[in-house]
Design a protein around this nucleic acid. Structure first.
Ligand SMILES: [Zn+2]
Ligand SMILES: [Zn+2]
Ligand SMILES: [Zn+2]
Ligand SMILES: [Zn+2]
Lengths: 143, 143
DNA sequence: GGTTAACTGATACTTAGTCTCATGTCGGAC
DNA sequence: GTCCGACATGAGACTAAGTATCAGTTAACC
């Protein structure tokens, strides 16, 4: 069963219709590089209306088909997502994104809950750095 | 020395001019509630040009006079900031924001650096929950 | 007081996303 | 297979958030 079929199955499972536009958006996503903007999708699936692309992206986000990556400059990128709760580690040089799901924010959260008396219900964490291959090819010069 | 004077001092220290527009923006910030949007400032300092307000907010951000709080709905709020690196704990009910600077993301970061071989250089963390008083006044009903 | 680089603000533009509503179509019922 | 209604679409106007341009103003330094 292809990735496309799996996503379609998930849509059906939640009572959403499988329309030609949605298929075109899905095709665009699956053909796209590891992360991309809504605008990339708009260009790729250029016969699908603007509003529909945005609506579809939101739908896919709600179904955990895609997740959003906040780039350091504030722009939102999207990325196919298989797992549940996770975070992103974004390379400042090449833009490569790594997921990490073994997020041990929980101890931080527990400690925070105790010290602030808030009941903590969610969090958003993005981490920025430089990946191994970028470090190798463009070493940062001291001074 | 007033808060206003302290901020002015910081601007001067970095070679920025003290203009009437900047003072009007600063006054708006200092009169504003604990967090606010650029639009709030625009309305409050309504005789200052739009571009100038945005430029001033960016300047103040660079000088660590204000910090940005990402609300759960994606909108950006601002907040006077005294400390350096810190994070926000936002109440979903009343919107109250608490800072926390004793952020022990560092152990998470170290672990992450080891497992991914990224050199980690920055992070962005926002935490959402419900504050003590909101929990007391609007308890979440089970079921 | 004069000089000048920094600053301002009007305005046009861009980017990201939402709203409306008339029209189209998916998919279940028959 | 075709009928039908709720769901979905798309054109386009609109909003929100921010940037770019540029002629005119002004703070700070002498
Ligand atoms: Zn890289
Ligand atoms: Zn997490
Ligand atoms: Zn609260
Ligand atoms: Zn931190």
């Amino acid at each position: 069963m292809s990735d496309l079929d799996l996503i379609i199955q998930r849509l059906e499972l939640h009572g959403h219709r499988i329309t030609a536009s949605r298929k075109r958006v899905l095709k665009a996503l699956l053909d796209a590089p590891a992360h991309f903007t809504v605008d990339d999708v708009l260009r790729q699936a250029n016969d699908v209306g603007r509003a529909t692309v945005f609506r579809t992206m939101k739908l896919l986000q709600d179904l955990n088909v895609v997740c959003r990556v906040m780039m350091e400059n504030g722009s939102l990128h999207y990325r196919l997502s298989t797992s549940g709760h996770h975070h992103h580690l974004v390379c400042r040089s090449c833009g490569q994104v790594a997921d990490f799901a073994n997020c041990d924010v929980s101890s931080l959260i527990d400690q925070l809950a105790r010290s602030t008396d808030y009941q903590i219900e969610g969090h958003w964490l993005e981490v920025y750095g430089r990946c191994a291959s970028c470090r190798a090819s463009e070493p940062v010069v001291a001074g």
